[in-house]
């Protein structure tokens, strides 16, 4: 099983805050904030947990 890293996403433009996994983080970085559409950088994400594969 792949390890799953969780992040907290904080949009610097609209203030939206969401808990997201790695694939959501990738999609948000590529497409922008789902709520306001602003472009995002990795600084908008804070890693919270990382579970290693077993």
């Amino acid at each position: 099983m792949d390890g799953e890293t969780e992040y907290v996403f904080d949009c610097p433009a609209c203030g939206e805050s969401l808990e997201v996994n790695g694939s959501m983080r990738d999609a948000l970085l590529e497409k922008g904030c789902v709520v306001c559409g602003s472009s995002l950088t990795p600084e908008a994400f804070t890693k919270t947990t990382s579970t290693e594969s077993t």
Binding site: M24, A27, K31, V34, C36, G37
Partner: peptide, 15 residues
Amino acid sequence: LTVEHVEQYGEAKRP
């Protein structure tokens, strides 16, 4: 919200 939602809203013009 899912990855698909993020992708679809990414295609939507910004208000």
